[in-house]
Computed example of a mutant assay.
Amino acid sequence: MDRFQVIPAAYVALRRGDEVLLLLRANTGYMDGFWAVPAGHVEYGESALTAAVREVREEVGVEIAPADLIPVTAMHRTGGNGEAIDERVDFFFTATRWTGEPRLMEPDKATGLDWYSLDRLPDPVVPHEALVLAGLRDGSIPAVIAHGFS
């Protein structure tokens, strides 16, 4: 049996009541034109918590204390093509407390930023993120999700 390495990423759904903050992806080469929560790769030497705090700061300019990150789910995800770049483990968090006002910090990577009700998300949302957001809306999200496996 071959073993593969996975690429970890951290996602943060900033919540304001029943609303979630979403960015419109652009010029990244991945899911451009789709709405997404602030997220990014866990870098060498970082924990998923540290990456989540850093990504939110870099993408929307707010500060979150690691203790204010609420774990939601972990998603083991595959592109099903056997390529290492498409083997992922995603850590999803929510946060309802932060310092600062969200604003678009990387206009070269996102062209929109807005709050959306979980009942009325924009179209399209990055598919694996849409799955998690639907679980947040319904309260039906499992602790661990396998996505893309047969």
Rank of each mutant, 00 (worst) to 15 (best):
E129W: 01
A52D: 05
E83R: 13
D18A: 13
E87M: 13
A143P: 05
P71E: 12
V89N: 10
L113Q: 07
P124I: 06
A134L: 08
G80I: 03
G45V: 00
H147R: 14
V72E: 13
A26S: 15
A52P: 04
N27P: 06
P142W: 00
V60K: 02
R137N: 02
A51D: 06
L104M: 10
S150L: 09
P122C: 11
D119K: 12
V144S: 09
A48T: 08
A39I: 00
F93L: 07
R137P: 02
G17V: 12
W115S: 01
A130I: 00
R54S: 05
Q5Y: 14
A10Q: 05
G33Y: 05
G17Y: 13
A10N: 07
G82Q: 13
A130P: 01
M1W: 06
H128F: 13
R103N: 14
E55F: 06
V126A: 08
V56I: 10
T28F: 01
M105F: 04
E106C: 10
E83K: 12
L14S: 07
L118P: 04
A95D: 06
E43C: 00
E55C: 04
T28E: 01
S117M: 01
P38Y: 00
M1R: 11
V144I: 11
L49N: 06
T28I: 01
A67W: 01
T96L: 00
D90T: 00
R54V: 01
V89D: 10
T28H: 03
H41N: 09
G100F: 08
A84R: 15
